[in-house]
Design a protein around this nucleic acid. Structure first.
Lengths: 352, 352
DNA sequence: TATTGGCACTCTCGATAATAAAGTGCTAAA
DNA sequence: TTTAGCACTTTATTATCGAGAGTGCCAATA
């Protein structure tokens, strides 16, 4: 395990300096440059020796003999886990984040605003899942006719989260039937059943007598509700163009696969899913995948930092940032955390 | 005006060949290559002379002396207006487009699917506005309580387009008041008033006596409805990564400004707005902006092709394609037209 | 008169070579 | 243990050169 490394204080500060410098300048660091930029009381020669040892430890790599050193993925990991100090947002950035509170109500709009702010502030790509609400236990369910062909579905999820949605039906339905169905569906909702499970039951199990007659209506309704909730599970993304500004993606061959990857929502969903169970930064619930840890070949030169957002105390989705491996981790993680907290507050205020 | 040019039949077919070749190969065309690829009964020398004249006419340009020729924006314009034959979709592409009919109901989902299909089929960037519904005259308006804090707003627009939306209020409201408000608002809707105008009236004009008391509720409601309808006006986009595959955007400096431009919804909205009143292809309502016609510096190496989509006979939004100036116009315009027609059919079927 | 072949000229592109810059590793001295 | 010095390596940059593709013009041709 990486955290087992016992590095001397000098090596740590050296590594810290190298990574920070590399993050800002994007060029391999040589002993001389390093010596000029920082005031270690050491000569380049000593630094050279230390750097050679850091390379032996796998924390640095040389792009080629007689180039400077660059942090390896392992190096970044060490930095993230042991070296970096938490980031303090500037006043301007705080101001920036506060815009979130001024957004209007709908959950999508809030999310959208959040990733906009995040990508602007970090100059990287921000992505967010919309809340996966279907896996949540439903407490009560209510159907209400609007006119012959549409109705409102009100759901109260555990944690007192309430959502309504407007459902259009392909055939007319009368309010008596609607209340019958409401009762029936509510009966099915005893022990913490989620929408997913409820629908599964309805489709697979035989229905009770009195309901049997309306099966086609129920199925129609269910499939519409299902489609609608599924359609709601989207990926929002902002700031893809920022990637092209980074020197490592200046040639299109490097940038293209990443952008193409990101355009496919299902991959991004998977990316978020994969985070559960992976390494997590100790001080918070910010997940961080560095370079090759990313599993997807397309992202091998990227790091992905993500964190869940909540309504009340229930995690309902994730928000993250994708940038070059050489990203400013403290800043990105700090801002991500701040925005996610704000998001949680805003959503909790509005929807609990 | 460009269409005044009287080109000899030979010049026309030569220009046609040059543009088509350039579209597929992406490299300047020389007289010799041209002669080899096509069976004009002419020698390279003659072709050279003709090309020189086409250049004098401003239809071709030379990247530098002694390179081949490349179509100018004016050349593309002539091609689009006078030379190109309409594109016949392949069986596969027809199959492709048919997927649109299988999409589920919500208007956004249909739109989203449409641009997905379009960008896949054309290998370019597809963009669409969501319908701008607020400018449409409203015929009837209905409010209906769902619970204390939310209600359904049903609107019937001219052309019998009906839409419902769920509104959350920041304060409780009782159904008696709701029906009062419904009546009041409906009275305001006499002569073809759109939502925009209605809201403007409410905010600026003094309210009648009996209603006055509920002003804060009305304003609250109006602002929520307004926010909600405005929020609905989004830009959908698909296939941005396709741009990076084109040789002219292989170096990031060229691609970056375009992607950044596209990330700002307000610019894309403007882009669509600007189309009204500009040149239009005669054979259909496909608009086409070539190179510098695009007004925006960022898009000077791009062409933008767009067409409205309808519900019934009412244009409610636009859908378009952005690609390099060297795009395959017949194909792009043909597929755009086909998809837009399908979109119109699907939407009309669902929402009229 | 329109078309063609020939030819000198121009410009780009790719390869090669030379040079400068930056960095390393090693050794010996402090 | 640290440092200074030095030879060596590698990349990036620049210059040079020739090949290739294309042009324009002129004189010959049909």
């Amino acid at each position: 395990m990486i955290s087992d490394y016992q590095l001397s204080e000098r090596k740590r500060s050296l590594l810290n300096a190298i990574i920070k410098d590399y993050i800002t300048h994007g060029e391999p660091l040589g002993s001389r440059t390093l010596c000029k930029r920082h005031d270690f009381k050491l000569s380049p020669a000593t630094i050279r020796n230390e750097m050679a040892e850091l390379e032996d430890a796998g924390l640095l790599v040389q792009p080629h003999t007689s180039a400077g050193r660059v942090p390896s993925d392992k190096g970044y990991r060490f930095f993230v886990d042991h070296l970096m100090e938490s980031y303090i947002p500037t006043l301007e950035e705080k101001q920036f984040v506060r815009r979130l509170e001024q957004t209007s109500k709908a959950i999508d709009a809030v999310l959208f605003q959040a990733i906009r702010i995040l990508s602007d502030a970090t100059q990287a790509i921000a992505v967010a899942e919309t809340p996966h609400i279907r896996a949540n236990p439903v407490q009560t369910l209510n159907l209400m006719a609007v006119d012959e062909e549409s109705m409102v579905l009100s759901l109260t999820y555990s944690g007192n989260i309430r959502r309504q949605s407007l459902i259009r039906l392909s055939q007319p339905i009368y309010s008596e039937i609607l209340s019958l169905l409401t009762n029936y569906l509510n009966e099915q909702l005893h022990d913490n059943v989620s929408l997913d499970e409820l629908f599964h039951r309805i489709v697979t199990c035989p229905l009770e007598r009195e309901i049997q007659y309306y099966k086609s209506i129920i199925l129609d309704m269910v499939s519409e509700i299902y489609a609608q909730t599924q359609r709601e599970e989207k990926i929002y993304m902002s700031g893809t163009s920022h990637l092209l500004k980074e020197p490592e993606f200046h040639t299109t061959e490097n940038a293209y696969p990443i952008l193409q990857f990101l355009e496919q929502d299902q991959f991004v969903h998977q990316l978020f899913k994969r985070l559960n169970g992976t390494v997590q930064t100790q001080r918070s619930d910010v997940y961080c995948l560095i370079g090759y840890e990313n599993y997807y070949q397309e992202l091998k030169n990227c790091s992905f930092v993500a964190t869940p957002y909540f309504i009340d105390t229930k995690a309902i989705g994730m928000i993250g940032i994708l940038g070059p491996t050489r990203m400013d981790y403290p800043k990105v993680m700090g801002l991500l955390q701040t925005v996610a907290n704000n998001l949680t507050q805003t959503l909790t205020r509005l929807f609990s």
